[in-house]
Design a binder for these strands. Structure first.
Lengths: 125, 125
DNA sequence: GGATTAGTTGCATAACTGTTCAAATATTAA
DNA sequence: TTAATATTTGAACAGTTATGCAACTAATCC
């Protein structure tokens, strides 16, 4: 039943042995486009680090300054700041300066919900 | 208002400058324990890669063999197999041999739901 | 038996990531 | 102004990761 078929995907074509050409074509069509997959995996990747997850967990309970985050996580202020920069770049958190102190908060509730989902998955496993 | 306090976290203590010792203590208490955070971030980390996300997306539509996955994703059979091993190790997918062909499927629906969440986040953003 | 096909695995490697250190910026206090 | 504090940033480093190649196992077909 094996067969060599030419699969066309996003402009380029390549010869691959595939068991079920029809299924392959329909699966290929069903995939969200590359940029979408990239952005979704980006979100998950960001949440795939314990330090960042802890930071987000703290912020889900209200504004926290960098200094306090550093104390809670038990890590370098600089390290925390680097991670906050990443989170800022992805619009997951936003800063608010008050004098010398910068308070961070979640930009929206989506991340909080994703975290809750993660916790539930964990519990059910 | 700044103050130097000793924060005790999981047996070890360290001196850190922190703005709000009370808040820090309560946040520290509110954090899920290390192993839990680790496992949750592990799940997200696994989904934080476009190849794996595509694989999982395919499997969310039914059983697919390694060969077809390779064709759909346009990548090496070996590379796909390596990723499947990771997913297997985390009990996210399971193999079923039929002759020479190995069909993979999702172990449970949790991952599918997480992916849906990701897609929704993406859309709302 | 030998040949072919599907998949796995170990190794090598290039690319990426998280953290730390040191230096810079910004704001307040003396 | 100088000193102190809160945060940011860039460079460097160690550790991890995704992929491809080559060699292997497993199953089928001749």
């Amino acid at each position: 039943m094996s067969k060599t078929t030419t699969i066309v995907r996003e402009g380029e074509s390549c010869d691959v042995t595939c068991i079920n050409p029809g299924k392959v074509r329909s699966l290929a069509r069903s995939l969200p486009k590359a940029s979408t997959v990239e952005r979704i995996s980006g979100i998950f990747q960001i949440m795939g680090d314990s330090s960042r997850l802890k930071i987000l967990h703290c912020l889900s309970q209200g504004d926290v300054c960098v200094c306090d985050l550093s104390a809670v996580l038990g890590m370098n202020v600089s390290a925390v700041s680097h991670q906050l920069r990443l989170l800022r770049a992805l619009n997951l958190v936003k800063p608010k300066r008050e004098g010398r102190i910068v308070y961070y908060s979640l930009s929206n509730q989506h991340v909080g919900e994703l975290m809750k989902m993660g916790l539930e998955h964990e519990r059910e496993n």
